[in-house]
């Protein structure tokens, strides 16, 4: 049996999607620990044992003073070096939603996430198109996942956007697809520049994205699964069990199994 890659999921100060992220990683064959930020600051060598680091979603510091800012600054100040060391190895890191806001604030990825154009928190599904190349996104072209955020509009100055583009680091874009068509919703949920939903760094090994793939791992999490179920039933087909977000986590595990 291959050795399972190990993931560390950051927690504390209002992060809140650690449990489902852990369950998903374990489901696809990783081991995962949820560790409080303060414990990692106290012992950065904890990161030495991990192949995958996750900054999960949540509401660190209640988004007070700006989403991801307070947590991100804390990470930068106390763990900047340790994370550099972690990323100097052949490792993977993902920032999901608040985690994406945190890793941009901490300077791990460029740009910033600012208030949605509607200035309101929004929970809905979106359709994504994979643009860049990243170990996290192998084998997927388009997929649907939910978002839930108030500050998810990706912003970066023109030169940063150019640079991202030239480095093939714009990883995910909001596009018109299955769910936005089904529910007649605009594809871009927040006014993100160039419809950016996620970007990569470190040759694709670091992925930051606003949508929540860990909430799209079961068929019954889809917003229209009862509609789809009727299609399957009437066509005499087996009803699927997995959801489209699972692939991202499978990719992460496969990345290490491919070694």
């Amino acid at each position: 049996m291959k050795k399972k890659p190990h993931a560390i999921i950051f927690s504390g100060y209002g992060l809140n999607t650690e449990d489902e992220t852990k369950a998903t990683l374990e489901q696809v064959g990783a081991t995962a620990d949820i560790i409080h930020l303060n414990d990692i600051i106290a012992k950065p060598s904890l990161l030495d044992k991990a192949q995958i680091v996750v900054f999960p979603g949540g509401f660190s510091y209640g988004d007070d003073t700006g989403s991801g800012k307070a947590y991100g600054n804390r990470v930068k100040q106390h763990l900047g070096k340790a994370l550099e060391k972690f990323l100097a190895r052949d490792t993977l890191l993902i920032g999901i939603c608040n985690g994406f806001q945190i890793i941009t604030s901490a300077g791990i990825l460029p740009g910033a996430l600012i208030a949605n154009d509607t200035a309101r928190y929004s929970d809905r599904w979106v359709d994504l198109e994979v643009q860049g190349s990243s170990p996290w996104l192998k084998g997927t072209k388009t997929f649907s996942v939910p978002i839930a955020h108030g500050e998810g509009k990706y912003y970066a100055p023109e030169e940063t956007l150019e640079k991202l583009k030239s480095e093939n680091a714009i990883a995910l874009k909001y596009v018109e697809g299955e769910t936005s068509k089904h529910f007649s919703m605009p594809p871009n949920p927040n006014g993100s520049l160039q419809n950016i939903a996620g970007i990569t760094g470190y040759n694709g090994r670091v992925l930051g994205l606003m949508p929540h793939p860990e909430r799209a791992v079961r068929f019954t999490q889809l917003p229209h699964w009862t509609f789809l179920r009727e299609e399957y039933v009437r066509n005499g087909k087996q009803i699927p069990t997995e959801g489209p977000g699972l692939q991202i986590f499978k990719n992460a595990v496969n990345y290490f199994h491919g070694k």
Binding site: N16, D19, E20, R120, D123, E214, R215, T226
Partner: peptide, 17 residues
């Protein structure tokens, strides 16, 4: 729509159907 109903990954039927 402004209340997160999908956190914790437990959502099966949504508030808006």
């Amino acid at each position: 729509q402004q209340y997160d109903h999908e956190v914790q990954g437990s959502s099966v039927t949504k508030p808006l159907q």
